[in-house]
């Protein structure tokens, strides 16, 4: 079962389990282009517990997104929001220098499925698919209702205007000729929505970061892009065409209907969603993902991560160019 045993976990085993503590069945999970995720079992004389280690590659934070809060920030945020009833993992331990594993934290292992294709197709999730859009709407309403204590996240709101400026700056630094992106930039500048009251935003709420079981949505994962901003960002990001994983006609994660998402969101206390604002964030999210693909390829180009995944992701930018044009033409 153990595919990569190369992680020195002896110190962590003793930290978590005392002198008799041992770590078994350590395996790196497939997801996570910017962070490593490892599953393992903590074993003592009395118990065996499945846990998850989230860790920066090589122990160094290497996120493509410059405003990512890092794994320490993510652990701090999780500890702050779980008491609010947000379905997020409980943090067990934040890595410290003596653990010898760099930056990261250990959290409880929630059992379920995150792989988009399985969630979209497997018979076991037929019931979960029925309620997926409504589950997501209700879960996001709960996230957006959290009143965070000061200092948990950077105080500055990262809304539509700030993100548009930042991603254009990043894109310009690449010298990448993308006519579709230029059309999108001009359109987005013309239609920039008014600033929204700063709200806790997950920042990467999409298939792949959502854990489901047969009964429905269980847990929201990967909070490293969380920030204060416009809540409609989360609703639209879930519907970005790339996150439909081939099921283009079903806007909500390639599984559900948009009306179900927005109805459930408002029923659960979310502010009514203005359709023009949603459309703006849908186009911007598509553009942003295209630029993020270029950013992740940069890590390969600069020799920071020579994996085939990082190299190949640069070639996913064209899909976002196509989606942008289809969205702007009202065909998607």
């Amino acid at each position: 079962m153990t595919v990569e045993a190369g992680l020195p976990v002896q110190a962590l085993a003793m930290r978590l389990g005392g002198h008799e503590g041992a770590i078994e069945n350590l395996v790196r999970l497939s997801g996570g282009a910017s962070q490593e995720t490892w599953r393992f079992e903590l074993v003592t004389a009395h118990m065996r517990q499945a846990l998850i280690l989230r860790r920066a590659p090589g122990g160094h934070d290497l996120s493509a997104e410059p405003v990512a809060i890092g794994l320490a920030g993510e652990a701090r945020l999780l500890r702050a929001i779980v008491p609010h009833g947000v379905a997020a993992p409980r943090v067990v331990h934040v890595l410290e220098a003596p653990d010898g594993l760099g930056t990261g934290y250990v959290m409880e292992c929630v059992e379920g499925e995150t792989l988009p294709r399985r969630l979209q197709r497997d018979a076991a999730f037929a019931g979960a698919r029925e309620r997926f859009a409504a589950d997501c709407g209700a879960a996001l309403a709960r996230v957006h209702a959290v009143a965070l204590a000061p200092g948990v996240l950077p105080g500055q709101s990262d809304g539509a205007g700030a993100q548009l400026v930042r991603y254009e700056q990043i894109f310009r630094s690449f010298d990448s000729a993308r006519p579709a992106f230029e059309i999108a930039f001009r359109q987005l500048k013309q239609t920039l929505p008014a600033a929204a009251p700063p709200t806790l935003v997950h920042g990467d709420f999409r298939l792949g970061n959502l854990m489901l079981d047969a009964t429905g949505l269980k847990c929201l994962l990967d909070w490293e892009l969380a920030h204060l901003g416009d809540p409609v960002e989360d609703l639209a990001w879930l519907c970005v065409p790339s996150w439909r994983f081939g099921q283009t006609a079903r806007p909500v994660g390639g599984i559900g209907a948009l009306g179900d998402l927005l109805d459930a969101y408002e029923r659960a206390g979310g502010r009514p969603v203005d359709r023009a604002r949603f459309d703006w964030w849908l186009v911007f999210g598509t553009l942003k993902w295209g630029i993020m693909c270029l950013m992740m390829y940069r890590a390969f180009e600069q020799g920071l991560d020579r994996s085939v995944e990082r190299a190949a992701i640069g070639r996913r930018t064209s899909e976002t160019e196509l989606d942008l044009m289809l969205l702007l033409e009202g065909r998607l």
Partner: peptide, 16 residues
């Protein structure tokens, strides 16, 4: 133009 590139890079991509 974008569709022509996607047809090379991801011929099974849904939006195509």
């Amino acid at each position: 133009l974008a569709a022509a590139r996607v047809s090379v890079e991801q011929p099974a991509y849904g939006s195509l």
